[in-house]
């Protein structure tokens, strides 16, 4: 069984993506990535990764998938933006 029900995680991820939808593409993806990194328990993130690996995540917004790809490439906590709630700024 998923750490938290998959439907719940998908809803939460899509809600985050919907907030960042009005931003230009790069900031949209980075905004979702930062939110998942700084606010989600790692087991929630892993459950989302597992769902994407198993199904491709067809119900997820495209920029959730892009943000997850960025998040999985980079890694450690030290790379996360510091004390910052919003989308990245240049």
């Amino acid at each position: 069984m998923s750490f938290i029900e998959t439907e719940r995680l998908v809803t939460m991820a899509n809600q985050i993506a919907d907030f960042f939808a009005p931003y230009p593409s790069a900031r949209r993806i980075e905004g979702v990535r930062n939110h998942l990194r700084n606010y989600w328990d790692p087991r929630m993130r892993q459950a989302l990764y597992d769902h994407i690996d198993a199904t491709g995540g067809p119900e997820l917004r495209p920029h959730v998938l892009e943000a997850v790809a960025v998040l999985r490439e980079a890694a450690p906590a030290t790379e996360a933006k510091k004390a910052y709630a919003g989308p990245p700024r240049d």
Binding site: F3, I4, E5, N38, Y39, W40, P42, M44, A77
Partner: peptide, 19 residues
């Protein structure tokens, strides 16, 4: 711990799934 923990609603979510 350097990773974020669970919010209260997510603690309840995870309890329901047995985690």
């Amino acid at each position: 711990d350097s990773e974020p923990g669970l919010r209260l609603p997510n603690m309840f979510d995870a309890a329901v799934t047995g985690s």
